[in-house]
């Protein structure tokens, strides 16, 4: 599973700063549950500066989901807020952090985006 997820977090850690998170600070822990096993990713955000580790430490927000769904999220094939509303992803603590972090998940690989009009072409 974990290739896409590991890559996502490693990229995030390397990136070091994310302007979309410039207004927030806090620690967010992702608990990815698979059977008896739980993988932890801890994301510390300090006004946009980001540090990622695999510690199981206390956090302001704890997000729980399956590795399978999380992989879909970090590859843009699923939407975080819909997953949250559906109960497929749970949050404890400060929900604002997860709503903000959701924004750095990529868009769908299949999205067309806005299409330039060309006369006679539909």
């Amino acid at each position: 599973m974990a290739d896409a997820i590991t890559r996502f977090f490693e990229d995030l850690d390397q990136q070091g700063y994310e302007p979309l998170l410039a207004k927030i600070s806090g620690a967010l822990r992702f608990d990815l549950h698979e059977g008896p096993q739980t993988t932890h990713w801890l994301v510390r955000i300090d006004r946009g500066s980001i540090q990622v580790s695999r510690e199981d430490m206390e956090a302001d927000t704890v997000v729980g989901t399956s590795p399978a769904l999380f992989e879909e999220l970090v590859t843009g094939r699923e939407n975080g807020l819909a997953a949250l509303l559906r109960g497929d992803m749970t949050v404890t603590g400060d929900a604002r952090l997860v709503v903000q972090v959701d924004r750095i998940f990529p868009g769908s690989p299949y999205a067309r985006g806005p299409q330039r009009y060309r006369k006679g072409v539909q």
Binding site: N79, R96, V99, G107, S108, A111, R112, G113
Partner: peptide, 9 residues
């Protein structure tokens, strides 16, 4: 805080 960040059709 919810301004769009990506393309989603």
């Amino acid at each position: 805080s919810l301004q769009g960040t990506r393309f989603d059709d």
